[in-house]
Computed example of a mutant assay.
Amino acid sequence: MKHAMGLYEEPFESIKTGKKVYEVRLYDEKRRKINVGDVIEFTRIPENGETLEVEVLELCQYNTFREMYEAIPFSLFDCEGWMMEEMLDGTYEVYTKEQEKQWGTLAIKVKQRTIEDIASNWRMYCIDRNFIGIGSTRKVYRVGKYVVKIHKHPIGYKQSLNELEIYTWMVEAGLSELFAKTYYVDENITIQQYVEQLELRNNQCFEIDIENDQALLPPHYEEVYRILDEKFDSFDLKDSSNYGLDIHNKLVFIDYGMTKKLYEDEWVPLAESGVLPQMELTTCSECGLEKEIRVYGENDTDKRCYACGKE
């Protein structure tokens, strides 16, 4: 679960730099909804609006702030060298003693998610509640402002390597804003920037139309399209499943690693033999909804959708 909280500049910077390990709050109704493993998005206030996502590692509840400060070293609040009265005076500038008595207090142990942390512990993050999508070769989970794509097949790994190469080239060319940033790739996973996926139309993917979808096209789109086609041999560039939307509702490439050669030489033979799934718009035999169903070869009679258990 994700929670939103405001944070003044000094504590915001302390958490951002890793100096502050515990955030201090009342144990009020809002904070009682927090669980270990949840995500908190802090927004810098009153100005700037910068955000910072952290993971909740521990929740420590105390009757009073004094009890809290007696139990947890001041250094973990980024208050090394402070006296107890300084800690309490500073806290009572934010919360009243009446509020403290009414609700009790909460120390929230947090850790900022880093690329290194996600790469080392990706199995911990790639759980059902974080699942957001699946293709024929990669399965996708959202981890805060990132996505983790698990390579279900070696072709998926090749796609991810291609995405890293393309993104790196586009940075040098000044065109990277049209792409979800690729941060990390290894044989198991790739980590990319999270971008909200373009919605389906009538429960299925569709082809981007340069003329009719002009409102979605960002600056330099046609230039980037040409580069992907001619320089990187990119495949299926008009398929809507390869796109997300940025904050301006303009297209962003989020799945851009398949090449024509990789598709024709490796993907097609495996799909035709039933090793990799193809998508077919049909009625799910279990939920009864018309959806894109994953079909493994022409003899596959299982017409359930992913939501009904077919992966």
Rank of each mutant, 00 (worst) to 15 (best):
290 E>L: 04
208 I>R: 07
108 I>H: 03
105 T>I: 04
24 V>T: 13
201 R>M: 12
32 R>S: 09
226 R>P: 00
163 E>N: 10
101 K>G: 03
180 A>W: 00
176 S>G: 04
148 V>W: 02
58 E>Y: 04
231 K>W: 10
3 H>P: 06
219 P>N: 11
290 E>K: 11
38 D>K: 11
255 D>M: 05
90 G>K: 00
185 V>P: 06
229 D>S: 14
38 D>M: 08
303 K>C: 02
216 L>G: 03
17 T>H: 08
38 D>V: 02
2 K>S: 08
257 G>D: 08
270 L>Q: 11
250 K>Y: 02
133 G>D: 00
92 Y>F: 15
41 E>M: 09
181 K>R: 15
121 N>F: 03
158 K>F: 06
188 N>D: 15
269 P>Q: 08
76 L>T: 13
262 L>Q: 13
134 I>V: 13
39 V>A: 10
247 I>V: 14
87 M>K: 09
25 R>G: 11
45 I>N: 07
2 K>G: 01
72 I>V: 08
31 R>K: 04
288 G>F: 06
86 E>Q: 15
244 G>Y: 04
153 H>T: 01
135 G>C: 07
265 D>E: 15
87 M>W: 08
199 E>A: 13
144 G>W: 01
60 C>R: 15
193 Q>Y: 09
66 R>H: 12
276 L>F: 09
128 D>N: 14
241 S>F: 10
261 K>Q: 08
181 K>E: 15
296 Y>P: 01
229 D>Q: 10
44 R>G: 00
145 K>R: 12
41 E>P: 04
139 K>H: 06
294 R>A: 15
268 V>R: 14
29 E>I: 05
204 Q>M: 10
211 E>S: 06
85 E>T: 14
294 R>L: 14
241 S>Q: 13
165 E>T: 13
138 R>D: 03
181 K>Y: 09
300 D>W: 01
194 Y>F: 15
103 W>C: 07
112 Q>I: 02
199 E>Q: 11
279 M>S: 14
154 P>G: 06
180 A>D: 02
186 D>G: 01
260 K>V: 14
140 V>N: 14
143 V>D: 09
81 G>F: 08
294 R>T: 02
153 H>K: 05
58 E>F: 03
170 M>L: 12
297 G>D: 05
242 N>L: 06
118 I>C: 11
284 C>G: 08
296 Y>K: 07
223 E>I: 06
129 R>N: 11
3 H>G: 11
302 D>G: 08
255 D>G: 07
196 E>D: 15
52 L>H: 02
205 C>R: 07
215 A>F: 09
87 M>S: 03
173 A>V: 04
101 K>N: 13
265 D>Y: 04
165 E>C: 12
82 W>M: 12
107 A>S: 01
60 C>E: 14
122 W>I: 10
240 S>D: 02
110 V>E: 03
206 F>G: 01
293 I>V: 15
263 Y>Q: 08
54 V>M: 05
